[in-house]
Amino acid sequence: MPLNEPIAPARKILPIIYVIDTSGSMAYDRIESVNQAMYQTVDVMKDIAHREPNAEIKIGILTFASGAEWRTKDATGKPSLIYMEDFYWNDLEAGGLTDIGDALNELHDKMSRYSFFSDEVGYKMPVIIFLSDGEPTDDWEGALESIRDNNKWFRYSTKICMAVGEDANEDILARIAGRPDGRPNSEAVIKITDTDTLKKLIRVVSATASKIGSVSRTNNDVQESVLTEVKGKMSDELGVTIADQTSDYTDKPEMAVSATSFSDGSDQGWDDDWDD
């Protein structure tokens, strides 16, 4: 038996997509905080990605201002997810409108088996980290209905929204962070008022979501788990508001496993037809 150098066992891909508001109101210290935070976050996440046995992390960066634009591209310049180890942060600049609808349309277009999610090995539930500081300036509502009703990848994603400053529209972010059945989820909206806290929050949310999103889960509590852990880590910070998580699930190791949380995993969801 030749002990050939083994190859790493196949891992599912965990897509982490940042959707970042680069409108005019983000200019100067807010966008600068995002840039600084992302430089540090990338190092932390590379380390996590390197050691994580359950998933390989791929990153997508989508920005929106007057229109939306993918910043992560493949070698041919086409929008793409990038393996964490190959990913580098490029500074963003702010200016323009707040076209949240365009951003949602872009997500809808690329979150597909025929676009970003074409790898045969398959995916963990994507994580979407959505950051905005203002009111939408386009038809965000139609775009949200469209992606929510027609895109399973989006519906099953773990969505964490950051509402930066007093002018951010938390209600809209709560709808974007909505649960798979469409109910708004205000608990998944984190409010931040100062930029130092924003920096730490981006790091903490990114690291926590990478870890929790990677591990294998047999109950449906990814979003709650991430938020509970983020809340714990940010508890000493001022200028951040994270709601208590009032889910049916708790993050504690539970012995009283109820029949509903661990229902008989039927064979639903095994169809290959992921794009409606």
């Binding site: 196949a10 599912k12 088996r113 999610f117 045969e120 090995v121 398959g122 995916y123 963990k124 539930m125 399973k152 990848w153 099953y156 294998s216 889960r217 047999t218 109950n219 449906n220 990814v222 661990f262 229902s263 008989d264 995993g265 039927s266 064979d267 639903q268 969801g269 095994w270 290959d272 992921w274």
Partner: peptide, 23 residues
């Protein structure tokens, strides 16, 4: 337990309950 059935495009908790539990 990770063979063809693991190769679903999106591994949800429901899939995992099947893969590592009921199925």
């Amino acid at each position: 337990l990770e063979g063809e059935r693991w190769l679903v495009p999106l591994l949800t908790p429901q899939n995992e309950r099947y893969l590592y539990g009921s199925g």
